[in-house]
């Protein structure tokens, strides 16, 4: 079995990342601006207008409470959609063959696309964070936890987007999961409310939602409050990242959706 030289792998990885970042930067009106506007409207409507009447949530003003969740929402949606749309587009145009015929190991292909997805998720997250400063003062309680949760979350949803793209055969297939699975999970993941407001049954249902843990751990990093045990939540996040990574590598090795 022959090996791939390290320098070669690094150049291939860098090439994929540059290509991915160039792609979403080139179409910034489609990739960076719309999510910023949507989340900005959430700030204005839910945080500012309705939030004033809601009062406190989890011991904080409603606007302060929802900011971490909205940043997280932006990161999740954009990491996922960047990878799923970019990789499926490569499949659709068959330009993925450029990569498949080249001496690029599977894990480099995966890492390149995942880092590209994370870059967009974090770019939109940064835009949303800057916008939030117009509405609230952001004081981060635990920078390490906040940073690592946001990075892991971006990674998890980039990996998930990659799997979606591998199985997708049409553009419908890349919108089904975001519309019918991801969006409900995000909205029911404690972005806009504390789980303590829910009856015990629905609190139990929320505990099955992985996004609930991500949002709460991130909120803990910023505000210092959470509905869940953050250590467990962090471990669950790591577990998801590892499981999805292994899943992606196995699918790539089998050639699912790529090799006939």
């Amino acid at each position: 079995m022959s090996g791939f030289p390290t320098n070669h792998k690094y150049i291939a990885f860098e090439t994929i990342v540059i290509k991915e970042v160039r792609r979403f930067s080139r179409i910034w009106l489609q990739t960076l601006v719309p999510p910023a506007i949507t989340i900005g409207l959430y700030f204005v409507i839910f945080g500012n207008l309705i939030g004033r009447r809601v009062g406190d949530m989890g011991g904080f003003q409603y606007m302060d409470f929802i900011v971490p969740g909205l940043i997280m929402m932006a990161v999740i949606q954009n990491s996922y959609s960047n990878v799923v749309s970019s990789f499926f587009s490569h499949k659709f145009q068959r330009s993925v063959e450029e990569l498949l015929v080249a001496p690029v190991p599977n894990y480099i292909i995966l890492s390149g696309f995942v880092v590209g997805g994370m870059a967009r998720g974090l770019a939109v997250g940064a835009i949303v964070t800057l916008m939030s400063l117009f509405f609230t003062d952001l004081h981060i309680q635990n920078l390490l936890l906040t940073g690592s949760v946001i990075l892991l979350t971006a990674m998890v949803f980039s990996l998930a987007g990659f799997i979606n793209a591998l199985f997708a055969n049409s553009f419908d297939d890349i919108s089904i999961i975001p519309t019918f699975v991801l969006t409900p999970l995000i909205y029911l993941g404690g972005v806009f409310y504390s789980a303590q407001l829910l009856p015990p049954f629905w609190q139990g249902v929320s505990a099955l939602n992985p996004i609930f843990y991500m949002v709460n751990t991130f909120r803990y990093g910023i505000l210092g409050v959470s509905d869940v045990n953050t250590v467990w939540a962090f471990l669950i996040l790591v577990l998801f990242a590892v499981a999805l990574y292994i899943g992606c590598i196995l699918l790539l090795r089998r050639g699912t959706g790529l090799r006939s």
Binding site: P5, I11, A12, E14, T15, I16, E98, A102, P103, V104
Partner: peptide, 10 residues
């Protein structure tokens, strides 16, 4: 250029 990068060219 991208294809060259996949083949490890500087």
């Amino acid at each position: 250029m991208t294809q060259a990068g996949y083949y490890g060219l500087s």
